[in-house]
Amino acid sequence: MNLFALFLLSHIGCDFIFQSDQMAQCKRSTKLGVKWWPLCKHALTQVPLVLILWGGGWLMAPPTWPHWQPLLIGLVIIVMSHWLIDLFKQNSQPLLKAQLHLTSNRVPVMSYTIDQALHLIVIGLVSMFLGQQWAFNHVNRLLLAVSIVLSTLLFADYFISFYLKGLDLNMDRLPDGAKLGRHIGHLERFAILILFYTHNVASIAVIVAIKALTLFKAIESNEHHFAEYYLIGSLLSLIFGCLGGYLLSLIAH
């Protein structure tokens, strides 16, 4: 569990916090010469993250903290697999479209989901084969808790965005030039996560009501399918917030 918690948090930091716009743009290229080196730098971001997390955990001295040998072996495998998965992500989209009979606007959400699932599978397999124990301790509980919070805010943010674009609801014409909806979504899911974790589930209705009242006129006019956009986005945000709160409560007990 220690290795899994280490590698999971470093992956989230690599993909959602420290990934530059250039790296994200390179991922969308189908040309190997354009993206292979930026993707190397992106995958290698995990190296300092893992070492910093491992060093911090070592200072806190949990009894089952992993030795440096399995850590380095796992890190090499994960960095290489991360590079390979990202390298072929964009090139695999035509295959996904053909095999799953997807429309063009629904390919990104499926590609994004499969990409993150593959990273998670690799992390789980490496941790399972190299880790001695899967017991919880105070350090990996903390690392997993941070991973859950960041995933609830950041992974869900990209997933919801891709999902809504896949529905073709004319999002580009919606009055959200400042991208305030993204910030509202972060705060909404964070509040839901806290309320679910603290067993104040009924209070989630207050957040939903406040958001609905604020956007009442836009929902009523339903310009450019705003009501559907709002409803689907809010339901997805609610699902991710509750799921994050549930996972957080599982590792805390």
Results as ranks from 00 to 15, higher is better:
residue 41 K to N: 12
residue 97 K to F: 01
residue 46 Q to M: 15
residue 65 W to V: 09
residue 32 L to A: 11
residue 51 L to V: 07
residue 32 L to H: 11
residue 72 L to K: 08
residue 53 L to F: 13
residue 90 Q to C: 11
residue 74 G to Q: 09
residue 80 M to C: 13
residue 57 G to V: 05
residue 64 T to A: 14
residue 74 G to N: 10
residue 66 P to F: 04
residue 98 A to V: 07
residue 66 P to R: 10
residue 35 K to T: 05
residue 54 W to H: 08
residue 68 W to N: 08
residue 89 K to G: 03
residue 59 L to E: 09
residue 72 L to W: 11
residue 69 Q to G: 00
residue 60 M to K: 12
residue 61 A to Y: 12
residue 97 K to N: 03
residue 31 K to L: 12
residue 44 L to F: 14
residue 40 C to F: 15
residue 48 P to D: 06
residue 62 P to C: 02
residue 98 A to F: 06
residue 94 P to T: 02
residue 45 T to Y: 15
residue 51 L to K: 06
residue 47 V to Y: 09
residue 90 Q to V: 01
residue 62 P to M: 03
residue 90 Q to W: 06
residue 66 P to Q: 03
residue 85 I to S: 03
residue 88 F to E: 07
residue 83 W to E: 03
residue 54 W to I: 03
residue 49 L to H: 01
residue 92 S to H: 10
residue 59 L to W: 13
residue 61 A to R: 15
residue 89 K to R: 13
residue 71 L to P: 04
residue 75 L to Y: 09
residue 28 R to S: 10
residue 98 A to N: 14
residue 30 T to I: 09
residue 52 I to P: 01
residue 45 T to Q: 15
residue 75 L to S: 05
residue 33 G to K: 11
residue 39 L to M: 06
residue 78 I to A: 00
residue 67 H to G: 13
residue 38 P to N: 04
residue 43 A to R: 08
residue 47 V to E: 03
residue 76 V to I: 15
residue 44 L to M: 12
